[in-house]
Amino acid sequence: MALTGVLRPGFIQLRVLDMKEALVHYRDRIGLDVVSEEADGRVYLKAYDEFDRHSVILREADKAGIDYVGFKVRTEEELDGFDAALRDYGLHTEHVPADEQPGLGRRVSFEIPSGHRLDLYTEIEMSENGPMVQNPDVWHEEPRGMRAIRFDHCLLYGPNVAENIKIFTEILGFSLTEYAEGPDGGKLAVFLSCSNKAHDIAFVEYPEKGKFHHASFLLESWNDVGHAADIMTRYDISVDIGPTRHGITRGRTIYFFDPSGNRNEVFALDYHYYPDNPTRHWDADQTGKSIFYYERQLNDRFLTVVT
């Protein structure tokens, strides 16, 4: 098996101001299925093409933003290895017992220097409604709304991005696939992969800790990006930008906002990455093109609007 250690981003827990509105957005518009609503109020959802029990958790709160993102690790030994290595590095890790979320095993939880909480885990129940495995049709029932295939990655804003890169590449085995240089010559926006994807997580340098830029959902095609745009207009969803394309990762994309102001992305068709590929980078005077390839300039919102 070639892919070891950290396999993929498995789940993200987001705060929403109003659960009812959030469910219309994530279930009916983006097209996720509700897996369960638990006694503590959290609602668990998944995309139609995901095997695991859930990938998006919504928690009603009085502020928007991200609680944490979870990465699935291949084996228990690797999970313990990461725990030890993170502690050796000087980070404080906590152990979250199994079943704090339904169907989820134990977690190793820690805060990275940008102020975000990251969870590592190895076990999660398989969904009863996952993709077929025997003579598999493409879906059980035709997907709804924007037809999101999976929760794919998130972009987080916070300070100390250089330190984050170190932890992700030196301890967790990620590769830096691409970055955009800032005006001071440092790395302004960085894209990290633990797999064959162009990115599994990304960071932008920002003074405030723990900020959330977007959670992204994969779509099948450029046509589906257009279909998502139709849905956004039809249901009056707040759009940030798009349909357009990113220079970085080359994904065709739309940024839009959930009813609590958390940014979402739907995208299709970014490039494949292999660990022997060189890191790509964009000079500071090309930032506009690197983020919005067709507009060739940033909108004010890209660098300032976060939850």
Partner: peptide
């Protein structure tokens, strides 16, 4: 007035 998320989350 700066326009951000339009949904009460970002504060701009």
């Amino acid at each position: 007035i700066p326009v951000g998320c339009r949904n009460g989350g970002c504060g701009v």
